[in-house]
Nucleic acid binder design. Structure first.
Lengths: 252, 252
DNA sequence: CAGTGGTCTAGACCACTTG
DNA sequence: AAGTGGTCTAGACCACTGT
C-alpha cells in the first residue's frame, strides 16, 4: 500500500530482491518446496545471477532457504530450538546430555584454549570429539579439551580407539567435583573438519559456544561447540521452560 | 610441514586466501592497522577482486577485520564480551541493566512476537526501543514488546515522547511480580533500522536474542535484541564469572 | 577532489547429484 | 548426460570518506 518507487536513498537491488523473495516465501511456498533454479530466477527478476545469489545468501543466512549443490534450493523448515542451558548442567558426558562421544586423542590445545585452561600452550590435553544430532540431522560438533593435569589417572586409559575411549575419558573427568560453568556464544565460520561433520561447505556460518567447566579449584575443561547457524536456534531456559515458536522476523 | 600442493580435493581459492590472510594478520599486523586496498591486494595475490572480497568477508564475519566504505579495511580488536546472562536477571529496565531506553510507541506486534506473548496478532502493544553501548560503540538495539493487557495502568502514561516516556513504561512494567525468563539466540541479518542504529549496512550479520519475561501467570513481555555479530561475544555467566579471553580459533 | 569499499554485470568453468 | 548450485573472472559504476 503506497508508492514504493522514488526512493531518495535507493536500496541495493539484492536487498530489495531479498524482501520480495521473503514475502513470496511467506505467501506462496510451502516448507520443503523447491524454488526455480538460480538462472531462471535471475532472468525472471531481470538481474545478474550473482545479484540473485546475494539475495539467496541472505535468506539462507536467516534460515529461510536451504541450498544444496547438484540438487536445488528449497524452503527451509523453521529453525530447531536446541537447548544449551539447563539441559547441560554438569560435566560434559553426563548421562543423557544429548551429545555423542566419537573419538578421543592426545594433542596440544590451540593457544586460545590453552589460555582459557590456564596451562602452558605446549602442554598436551585430551581432546574428545563429540557430535549432536537432533531430528536425524547433525546440528553441532564439538571438541572437549581436558588438560592431563586435571585428570591425572587419565594416562592409564587404554580403551580401544573410538567412541569407547572417548566415553572413558569423559567418565574419568566426572570423578572431579563439579563447581560450575560459564558460556559464551559468538559467530564463526566452519572449518573444513567441522563443515564435513555438519554436512556443510567450509566457511558456512556457525554459532560457536565456548563452555568453561570449573572443578578442583580451576578450569577443568573447555568445550568448543560449533552449531549450524542456518538451522539452529540456541535456547537458554532459565526455568526449564522451552521456547516453542520461531521468531522469524523482527519488527518492521 | 609437508606437501601442501597436490590436493586431491583442491580447496577454493577464496578459502585458501582466507587462511593465508588470517596467518598474516596474526603475525604481521597490529590491531587498528589498515590493510592495502582491495584492488592492490587482489593484484598481489593474482586473483579477481571479487574473489579477494570473498576472503575478506569471511574474515570480517569472524571478527578479524573491519571494513568501512570510503575509509579502508582495518584489523579488528578482539570481540567484546557482552554479558547477557546473570547481569540481566529481572525485568527489562531494572536499574543498572546496561540498556538505555530511547523511545516508546504503541503499535501492533509482529505475528511472531504476538504468538510468543500469547495475544491476538492485531492486539496493540507498547514497544520500547532501547540501545546498548559498550566502550563507546553501539553493540545492540532491541525492542521490548509489552501487551497493554499485562500492564493495565500503562494507558495513563503521558510523559513527553522520548527517553522519559520509554523509562516510564518500563517502570510501570516492574510493578508486576517477576516470575522468570527464557532466552534464545540465533543468527539474523540487520534490517534497515537496526543497521542504522548499529552503524552497519543492511544485511549485516547479527545475533538475535529473544527473551521472554514471565509474570502475572503468563508472558508479560518479549524483548528482541540484535547484537552486532562481528564485534560481540555474548557471555552467559552461570556463576557471575566472566570470560576474559577471545577464543579466536578452534582446533586445527 | 582522489581513494576507498559496495554493488552489479555477463560470461565461463567446475563439483556435485540425479536419472 | 543433464541440471543444479559453487567458484572465478574482468570490468564498470556507485556511495561514501577524507583532504
Amino acid at each position: 500500500m503506497g508508492t514504493t518507487q522514488l526512493e531518495s536513498v535507493p536500496e541495493p537491488k539484492y536487498w530489495h530482491l531479498r524482501t520480495v523473495l521473503s514475502e513470496a516465501l511467506d505467501s506462496e511456498f510451502a516448507v520443503g518446496q523447491v524454488l526455480p533454479n538460480e538462472r531462471d530466477l535471475a532472468a525472471r527478476f531481470g538481474v545478474a545471477r550473482a545479484t540473485l545469489r546475494q539475495a539467496l545468501e541472505q535468506l539462507e543466512l536467516e534460515g529461510r532457504l536451504q541450498r544444496r549443490r547438484g540438487v536445488g534450493t528449497t524452503v527451509a523448515p523453521p529453525r530447531v530450538g536446541v537447548a544449551v542451558g539447563s539441559a547441560e548442567l554438569g560435566w560434559p558426558g553426563a548421562p543423557g546430555d544429548a551429545w555423542q562421544a566419537e573419538e578421543s586423542d592426545r594433542a596440544t590445545a590451540p593457544a586460545a584454549v590453552a589460555e582459557l585452561l590456564g596451562i602452558a600452550k605446549d602442554e598436551p590435553v585430551h581432546i574428545v570429539r563429540r557430535t549432536r544430532v537432533t531430528g536425524g540431522q547433525p546440528v553441532a560438533a564439538d571438541l572437549v579439551h581436558i588438560p592431563a593435569s586435571s585428570v591425572p589417572d587419565l594416562t592409564a586409559i587404554d580403551a580401544p580407539a573410538g567412541p569407547a575411549r572417548a566415553r572413558a575419558v569423559l567418565r574419568e573427568l566426572r570423578r572431579t567435583e563439579f563447581e560450575g560453568q560459564d558460556r559464551s556464544v559468538e559467530l564463526g565460520s566452519a572449518r573444513a573438519d567441522d563443515a564435513r561433520a555438519l554436512d556443510r561447505l567450509p566457511g558456512a556460518p556457525v554459532l560457536v559456544v565456548t563452555t568453561r567447566y570449573f572443578g578442583a579449584g580451576g578450569t577443568a575443561a573447555v568445550s568448543l561447540a560449533t552449531y549450524r547457524a542456518d538451522t539452529c536456534r540456541l535456547t537458554f531456559g532459565a526455568d526449564g521452560v522451552e521456547i516453542h515458536h520461531t521468531p522469524e522476523r523482527q519488527a518492521s
